[in-house]
Computed example of a mutant assay.
Amino acid sequence: MRLAAFRSTAEDAGARHVGLVLGDAGPDRSTAWWIHPFAEGTDLIELLAADPVDRERLADEAAQADGLAPTDVVLLPPVYPVAMRDFLTFEAHVDGMERGMGNPGPPAAWYDAPVWSFMAPHAVTGGNDDIPIPPYTERLDFELEIAAVICRDARNATPEEAHAAIGGYCVMNDWSARDVQGKEMTLKLGPSKGKDFATTVGPWVVTADEVDRFRDADGFLDLAMTVRVNGVEIGADRSGNMGWSFDQLVSHASRGSWVKAGEILASGTCASGSLAESWGRTGSLNPPPLQVGDVVEMTIDRIGTIRNRVVASQPAVAAVAPARRQLRTEQSA
């Protein structure tokens, strides 16, 4: 089952509804799907957490009503998350990034346990939204990821218990200002301004039960992932190449802590799923950083496609002032 958040093109920007997505994309990548609205007030996270029988009943009711065509709606982020965690689970991606920093490959600590960075929940954008290029970067990059939407609270959960907390999955693009990110992380913190301007999630959430049959023998969701820029394929991988399963990620995050309903937990970038990984492997900016007018399209099999155009930056704000330096006096022994 695919669940979307949307507003009609005739509504104000603040409108938000939840709908059932029926139909599919055609072989020529054209859209042939419709959104059938649920009753007003329906909450997508609560729908993910509902008993499957009840959810199917509500979906059947929604399907009886007339559907809205893609041209009639604006797809919104399916979730405005209460928190976002971005993991680092693809070994090949870590290898490429480390080599770009002069290291021989993944550090030994990477294999010990999954690590993540917290992201800015208010920066989420819809699956077809334009993305203004930040005025302070010359190295705009994309990151192809698969993300899990949490529908039940979890604390100290086993992987088996964590599985029940995952309501569904969506495609995620963790946009990155690589020049800014690199400078920030030399201070052993961040990324901050290198990441806080946009994170695309969408186009909708596919319920976990819909894709569970695509798990491999070790319980890893195994779906094809591709990214194209201006119609040219730049990278491809499979989610089955993650170092940890989503059940393990949720379980680990919940150790001595809470993972709350409404969170998004993302896989991190897949192999060849970013420009920076190619830069690290080749030692050159090839393919080049994203520019105004570029269209980034990400597809995960059985989940969907997000497609975003890079547009000119919003009005510039004042540059940040450097730190005030403190005078230091040497004290004699």
Rank of each mutant, 00 (worst) to 15 (best):
G280A: 11
V149P: 00
A50V: 03
E138D: 13
M298Q: 14
L76N: 03
R178K: 14
A164W: 08
S332W: 14
T89I: 10
I300Y: 03
H17D: 01
P288G: 09
Y80N: 15
G168M: 09
V205W: 02
P107Y: 05
R307N: 14
V311H: 03
T125Y: 05
P322Q: 15
L221P: 08
R281Q: 13
R99H: 09
I150S: 00
V295P: 01
A25E: 12
T305Q: 14
G240D: 06
G96F: 10
V310A: 05
L22S: 07
A276M: 06
A13Q: 04
S245I: 10
A123I: 04
A154Y: 00
M119Y: 02
S313E: 14
R228I: 04
G182Y: 00
R29G: 11
E40A: 15
A10T: 13
I166M: 04
G127W: 01
R57K: 12
W279I: 05
R324E: 12
D54L: 13
E98H: 11
P315S: 08
G41D: 04
T207D: 12
G23F: 05
M101A: 14
G102V: 08
P315Q: 04
G190S: 06
I303D: 06
S313I: 03
T31I: 07
P81E: 12
E91C: 07
A120H: 14
A261H: 05
A109S: 15
S30E: 13
L76S: 02
S117G: 15
S8W: 01
A83Q: 07
